[in-house]
Design a protein around this nucleic acid. Structure first.
Lengths: 261, 261
DNA sequence: CGATCAATTGAGTGTGTTCAATGTCAGTGG
DNA sequence: CCACTGACATTGAACACACTCAATTGATCG
């Protein structure tokens, strides 16, 4: 498995402002040995569709922390599947207090919200070093009859995302601060997220607290208090450094259950 | 233009509980004379795609107030285009306080959120007498190469809806009660809604106040106060009976502008 | 090690909720 | 036509949850 890494304008990234579209390109791994093969097949529904998509993507793009995968007003060209890392989707708002629309992790498809537009309406930003497969929309249309299957699959994914957002909308309205965080952590458990040394109860939250708060519809101060409360309830066993938390999954789960009761 | 109306289990509807799938079927009007032709062409993007869809829909369904167009757990079979009337989309929630996901009016496509599932996750309920064109999903796939165009169009519509909900999420979080109502009324102005006798500043809100409040993420009491405030500010000129309001569009528009400033 | 930004903590405030009472409308039957 | 009924809608007063703002602590990086 040869790996050729080609530099393409790499620059030291600072936190703010985020740099734009400076990334490396690398020949994609053989998909047969690709660590994300399984979740990609799941994403596309079946082996066959996956193979069609696979044949479209010859490269992986590597983004460093805070780099843009795409940026508001860029022309819409592609969808992206995350091979590793994490991405936040934010909408720019006049006044600087951007709206965080969602977080995406390994195996997730990013860019669906932009299919209906000529230009991206969101920024997709790498939260840490992130590898993605780029799926060019142009190529999608050139697949003959299998294109239909793929479009239908994308329909399905879009539709599910729609329900997901609506659910999120409902939750962040009706749940108290503490329960919102509980829900969030619970969802994270189902995601392919960095566990910092294989311990499954250890979570490295790649995003800033302010972004989590924004996503959950609360102030950073409120989130901070919620973290403390969950810790005092033993649902969070420990907090290391800034981003790593240790979770008691049993208690977490029972906490989430209680909410719906 | 012959109109054959066939009764199919019509029953006197009471407010609650809503009746299920009791509706009349009627031969569709000639699309050339169809009053909603224009907005259907707009919906599907171009004349050609519209014609393909048109050829799939031979009938119109007529629902009375409070009847279900579809119901949670029904198998997903169709999309619906509203010819006249209005529909609310609600998600059932344990505890009876259902979540209102959105309102749909003449020319709108209903059911997109369900494409990703085998069974509907929402109730689509007629707010008054409502005529719809039913588009069977089975038929959509049988259109050969034009099917791809249609699927892509549906992609586009889904994607836009995604952005729309996300915007709604943001608005209901960051706007004060009064501004949320302002926004809502402003959107209504762009919709094909009953104006009760051609006066363009007169609006008949077909939905219950409680549903508006729910949709906007507030309590009915808060909505009531907001209505009163808008009236005292002259944005609402008058309120007749229960559902009809008279709006000062200039003031409304300037009120909405101010919010984003 | 100091500079800088992120995160936390506390005290006071305010917007919208809650709860209960009152008012209004549409439908029904006398 | 009017009184009666039940659901919907409005109003008011007290409360609570999360916000605001400012100060403090804690991480991270040059």
């Amino acid at each position: 498995m040869k790996i050729t890494i080609k530099m393409k304008n790499v620059k030291k990234t600072r936190r703010h402002p985020a740099t734009t579209n400076l990334h490396m390109i690398k020949n994609r791994q053989e998909t047969d040995t690709c660590p994300t093969r399984e979740c990609c097949v799941e994403l596309w529904g079946d082996e066959e569709t996956f193979c069609h998509i696979r044949d479209l993507t010859k490269f992986e793009l590597i983004y460093k922390q805070d780099e843009f995968i795409y940026k508001t007003n860029d022309p819409v060209t592609s969808l992206y599947v995350i091979q590793s890392g994490a991405i936040k989707l934010e909408k720019e708002v006049e006044g600087g207090d951007n709206h965080i629309s969602g977080f995406y992790f390994t195996g997730d498809l990013v860019g669906l919200e932009s299919l209906g537009h000529k230009q991206y309406h969101y920024n997709a930003i790498a939260l840490n070093e992130t590898w993605v497969c780029e799926i060019r929309l142009q190529k999608l249309a050139t697949l003959g009859k299998s294109a239909l299957t793929i479009q239908q699959r994308i329909n399905t994914l879009l539709s599910r995302k729609l329900c997901e957002i609506d659910e999120h909308l409902y939750s962040t309205r009706h749940l108290h601060i503490e329960q919102r965080l509980l829900d969030f952590l619970n969802v994270l458990c189902t995601k392919n997220i960095d566990h910092a040394g294989d311990s499954p109860d250890r979570f490295v939250l790649p995003m800033a607290k302010a972004d989590i708060a924004n996503y959950l519809g609360m102030r950073p101060e409120s989130l901070s208090r919620a973290f403390r409360q969950l810790q005092s309830r033993g649902i969070i066993k420990d907090r290391l450094k800034r981003k790593t938390i240790v979770i008691n999954k049993q208690k977490l789960l029972s906490g989430v259950m209680k909410k719906s009761a």
